[in-house]
Simulated assay, not measured.
Amino acid sequence: MIKRQLRVDPSYKPCGNEVESTDRIILGCSFARAVWFGSNLSYVMPNSNNPKLSQLLGFWSQLQFPNKKSRMAALYLLSFIVWHLWLARNELAFRDMRYTPEEIIERSQKAFQEFWASCTAPSSAHSNSSNQPVHWTVPPPNRYKLNCDASLPHSASRGGIGGILRNSMARPVMAFSAPEHFLDPFVGEALAVRTGLKATLDGGFENINIEVDNVSLASLLIDESLPVPMSAANIIDDIKILLQNFPFVNISWIPREANDVANSLARKATSLVGRMDWPNSNPWLLDLCQQDALCNACPPLQ
């Protein structure tokens, strides 16, 4: 409207009255950043004052996903978040309706789920395995998979981290829960990976796949050219040094639904006073892993 010489207020109220632009509405302002991080993508926007949607889409192809279906699901969710951020802008501009980041997250993820369900619904009685819900998958033989996660209760400065290493039969060979002090969930996610890598090295395990449900963290570990948040710079440096000790490492992003065990370990840590290295035969741990084992047609865990 400004380009057409119309007299309108150029500021965008959720951005603290900064001048409105498409990239700022969708990515740059604090409102949009809260939506991106709170969504299932857990995406942390770079510290740049002018993040670009083109840059976000540019490094998307560099991310590694468990399979093509997971990649497409993440891209579709990204699209719905962009669309609902734009809708929220229009509702505010033309109808003076205000939404919270939580409401935008709920609306965009609900729309995505409805769309995804229609895309993956079986077209006949003979549906194939690609239509099954997303779940954790076993690593190849002679390789281990490390899953890590962090949990930070609302308005708390003390959270928890958790991680688990499993073999190709879905059996746990290492698992931990540890309380940690952090204010930024991204820092907690990075702490979980660093702790998990140290424990993996101490156990003598070499060939590993690493899975995290935080898009930003996966991106940083895959692409060293991306800017690192100052709050996690030292932790990311430690992780990169630790990775050099492994003959083979593969890093990928997974949906939160496929990271349930690591998430449960992280939430458990918030009620602990110190680190807990779980015995591999612990009934609670085996029960957490049981569903993943069944989804991969592995023998029952006992």
Results as ranks from 00 to 15, higher is better:
Met1His: 08
Leu6Met: 12
Asp9Arg: 13
Pro14Glu: 03
Pro14Thr: 01
Gly16Phe: 00
Asp23Gly: 07
Arg24Pro: 09
Ser30Cys: 15
Phe31Ile: 04
Trp36Lys: 00
Tyr43Asp: 00
Val44Gln: 14
Val44Cys: 12
Pro46Gly: 02
Pro51Cys: 01
Lys52Ala: 07
Leu53Arg: 03
Ser54Thr: 11
Ser54Tyr: 11
Gln55Asn: 08
Gly58Phe: 05
Phe59Ser: 04
Ser61His: 10
Ser61Trp: 05
Leu63Cys: 01
Leu63Thr: 02
Leu63Asn: 02
Pro66Leu: 07
Asn67Cys: 12
Asn67Leu: 11
Lys69Met: 13
Ser70Asn: 10
Arg71Leu: 08
Met72Asp: 15
Met72Trp: 14
Leu75Asn: 10
Val82Met: 10
Trp83Ala: 08
His84Thr: 06
Leu85Phe: 01
Trp86Val: 10
Leu87His: 03
Ala88Met: 04
Ala88Thr: 05
Phe94Gly: 05
Met97Val: 15
Glu102Gln: 08
Glu102Arg: 03
Glu103Leu: 12
Ile104Leu: 02
Ile105Asn: 00
Ser108Asn: 08
Phe112Asn: 03
Cys119Gly: 07
His126Ala: 15
Ser127Arg: 14
Asn128Tyr: 14
Ser129Gln: 15
Asn131Asp: 13
Trp136Lys: 04
Val138Tyr: 08
Val138Ala: 15
Val138Gly: 10
Tyr144Pro: 12
Leu146Phe: 03
Cys148Asp: 01
Ala150Arg: 03
Leu152Cys: 00
Ser155Ile: 12
Ala156Gln: 13
Leu165Tyr: 10
Pro172His: 06
Pro172Tyr: 03
Met174Arg: 04
Phe176Ile: 11
Ser177Asn: 05
Ala178Leu: 12
Ala178Met: 11
Leu183His: 13
Asp184Gln: 07
Val187Tyr: 02
Val193Ile: 12
Thr195Ser: 09
Gly196Thr: 07
Gly196Pro: 04
Leu197Arg: 01
Gly204Asn: 01
Phe205Asn: 01
Glu206His: 14
Asn207Ser: 13
Ile208Ser: 04
Ile210Asn: 01
Val212Met: 12
Leu217Asn: 09
Leu220Lys: 00
Pro227Asp: 07
Met230Thr: 06
Ala233Leu: 10
Asp238Trp: 00
Ile239Ala: 08
Leu243Cys: 11
Phe246Gly: 06
Trp253Gly: 10
Ile254Lys: 00
Ile254Asp: 02
Arg256Asp: 13
Arg256Trp: 04
Glu257Tyr: 11
Asp260Pro: 10
Val261Ile: 07
Arg267Gly: 10
Ala269Cys: 02
Ser271Pro: 12
Asp277Asn: 12
Asp277Glu: 14
Asn282Phe: 15
Pro283His: 05
Cys295Met: 14
Pro299Asn: 06
